[in-house]
Amino acid sequence: MDIDALRSFLAFVETGSFTRAAKQVNRTQSAISMQMKKLEQDVNKSLFEKQGRLLSLSYDGQVFARYAKQLVQLHDDTLLQMNTAKPTTLLRLGCPDDYAESVLPTLVKLLHTQFTNLDLQINCTPSNRVKLMIDSGHLDLGVITRSPDSEEGYMLESAQGFWVYSPQHQAQQLQPLPIAIFQRDCRFHQATLEGLHKQSRDFKIIACCGSACALKGIVKSGIAISAMNELSIGDLPKLIDSNLPKLPTTDVVLVRANNQQNPVSDVFCADLSQQYRTNHRRDINTQPIV
């Protein structure tokens, strides 16, 4: 149905006359008559009836009038919204679930302070997968654990590695020592195996996976102990045991895709990195002393 015809119909509803309706919408009376005939064809109903010399709405016309008002209003609201809506910035962010509860919330908050109308799409996947998606252009921005001695990315924070366990199950006392570790590309995978081998420690790998959530579930159930950095352990208690190998410190950094479509630049990432570290220090300093 033509929106102008609906406006003409509503003008008739308001004025009760084709003549006055034509003046209201700045059309000729014959043009109004043609529009009304077309509307009646569209709905397959007679919208008008004669009462003597006067033309009035039929029963179907009265029903149609309610819907016509809604259609015109919806049309006008749609155009208003589309014409006044602020441009949306699509940003695709990758982040391992290791940092979903620690790094990610602060980063999301900072990103929304930089963009007034941000469409933030987050993909939780391991660091190696984030790198691949950055390189292939499927992500704009990524949070990763960078390799040792690498200057890749923009520093967010460093995190010390810890052994974690379930106090209710004491899996660390079992022989051979049951461990659940990250996949081979993770720094803790190599550090854990090398450390245990150097100690000639008898151990058994219960599982290797790329999900911190999965590792924490295994540890909480008492099946194994695990090694992860302090940003990933959540509410798991640290296992302080001098008989276990010391774990390394890891750097968590921000990386960006190098393509023209990326809404964030290197300068933006450097500034975001600085804001994150400033915000993180403030969060630490304002934590209550127990």
Rank of each mutant, 00 (worst) to 15 (best):
D251Q: 11
E101T: 14
G52F: 00
R66L: 10
P167H: 05
R92D: 00
Q24V: 05
L239N: 00
E14N: 11
A270W: 01
S265H: 10
Q160G: 01
Q275K: 14
D76Q: 06
S56N: 13
S8N: 12
V72H: 06
P176M: 09
S232M: 04
A100K: 13
K220L: 12
V290A: 14
L141N: 01
N117C: 00
N258C: 08
R282D: 14
Q24I: 04
I3E: 01
D149G: 04
Q114W: 08
V143N: 00
R282T: 14
V264P: 11
S226R: 02
L71Y: 10
L239S: 02
P245W: 03
S158E: 09
K131M: 10
H112P: 04
L110I: 01
M228C: 10
F203K: 11
D241Y: 03
L118Q: 09
A159N: 12
S56I: 15
H197T: 13
E151Y: 05
C95K: 07
R256F: 13
D283I: 15
N262P: 01
L193Y: 01
D271T: 12
Q190I: 07
K69R: 15
L239I: 08
D76Y: 01
N26I: 08
V108R: 15
Q73Y: 11
C213M: 15
D119K: 04
S46A: 12
Q168L: 13
E230I: 07
K220P: 06
R187F: 13
M155Q: 15
P126Y: 08
T113W: 08
L196A: 03
V219E: 05
P167Q: 05
E157M: 13
E40T: 06
